[in-house]
Design a protein around this nucleic acid. Structure first.
Lengths: 211, 211
DNA sequence: TCGGCTTGTTGGCGGGCTGTCAACAAGGGT
DNA sequence: ACCCTTGTTGACAGCCCGCCAACAAGCCGA
């Protein structure tokens, strides 16, 4: 593992930083916050421990970067919004979510379940930003983008459902992908039909028009 | 805060243990795992640090007890299952959940959102047991108790939705209780109608009979 | 009342982890 | 070949944790 080849080599700051970050992502993905020490990261990176503080500051700062990396969605599959029927779009957004989660499931799930210290305010904020992004995607897919704070809150709640359901599927193995898909699609349709209309702006009173 | 009155007094083991535990619950509820040291708990309890290890073992062991306390639902409101229509029972179980969460919201939410180190296996198990209990209550309320693992998985997913929605309500304040109630009731009804039937035992083929 | 004994309680030791900083050296520029 | 920038190191101080021998509070029998 630890690629230490005796000699001491100079790397460009970006390269060294990214190398340490990669090691940290791997270690924090395998074990939790308390189980990984900066000494471990330094050893596996073949680097003096002080260098980690030099590049990242605090151990928590390093951890925040790790979580950001874990939650960063590969931009390949984004922005594919099929223009069909509502049910079609719901099925598409659910499939997109399941694809993203299942591909790099371990790191994504580990990070979204608060990674190791959800109580920390900064960690919570990083996770909240990722949830916000997913919620915005959901709202866009169902044609409710930019329609008020309550809708965003409901969309974030739905992302919570999607997350817990995905965990039941990928970690516990108690559900099949088909069951997960049906659950998420049916509940999202229900929310769009029955719950979202009550949450749009009080002044704007066109609850169903997508355009 | 720290009730230190100079002299050193002997307490019965249960009393001392409970006193320390109370202090730990307060501190871990205010701050997270990393921000609370056993020294802090000892100081606020007016006790030597070693005594904590004597009573609880490891700091993590103390933390597990704290989370168990936080997740323990006051047994008052349980076991009230109104025998009415399905929609009535759904509304009742949602109200019950919202009551429980809103009463001691801070500690419950703090603990259920993984309390501080969800990555730890033991902490995850304690939280999972609490989620299992809530899921069982939901299944019992809708008449699907004891009908297979997939159903329990779906119920746990629903508890995830309830948790994230409650957090949007209580912590972020972006939703009203009425909105939360409608969201949770509508989605639960949808799951009972459209999703649960596919998840019952393969051999048992009576998806709708409550009795 | 007083000594003894059980046991709740203390304080310090060793080990480990973290943040900081002055000193060192790798490698390019002149 | 030299120098000088700067990536890199190693050690120091501080804190936290688990452990354990020593201490004493309070009860019991004499």
């Amino acid at each position: 593992m630890s690629v230490d080849q005796g000699l001491r080599r100079r790397l460009e700051p970006d390269a060294r930083r990214e190398q340490i970050l990669a090691v940290a992502v791997r270690l924090f993905g395998e074990r939790g916050w308390a189980e990984v020490s900066t000494t471990d990261v330094a050893r596996d990176a073949g680097v003096a421990r002080g260098l980690i503080n030099h590049y990242f500051g605090t151990k928590k700062d390093l951890y925040l970067e790790v979580i950001r990396v874990m939650l960063t969605v590969p931009p390949s599959a984004i922005a594919q919004l099929p223009e069909g029927d509502l049910a079609t779009r719901v099925a598409a957004i659910v499939d997109w979510f399941l694809d993203v989660v299942s591909q790099h499931s371990r790191s994504w799930l580990a990070a979204i379940t608060a990674g190791g210290m959800a109580a920390d305010a900064e960690v919570a904020q990083v996770v909240a930003e990722a949830v916000d992004g997913a919620a915005a995607s959901v709202l866009a897919a169902v044609g409710y983008a930019g329609r008020g704070d309550a809708l965003h809150a409901m969309a974030r709640s739905y992302v919570g459902l999607a997350t817990s359901t995905a965990r039941e599927w990928l970690e516990r193995g108690g559900l099949t992908r088909a069951q997960v898909h049906k659950l998420l699609a049916a509940t999202l349709l229900t929310m769009v039909d029955q719950v979202f209309p009550d949450a749009v702006f009080p002044d704007a009173a066109f609850p169903d028009a997508a355009f």
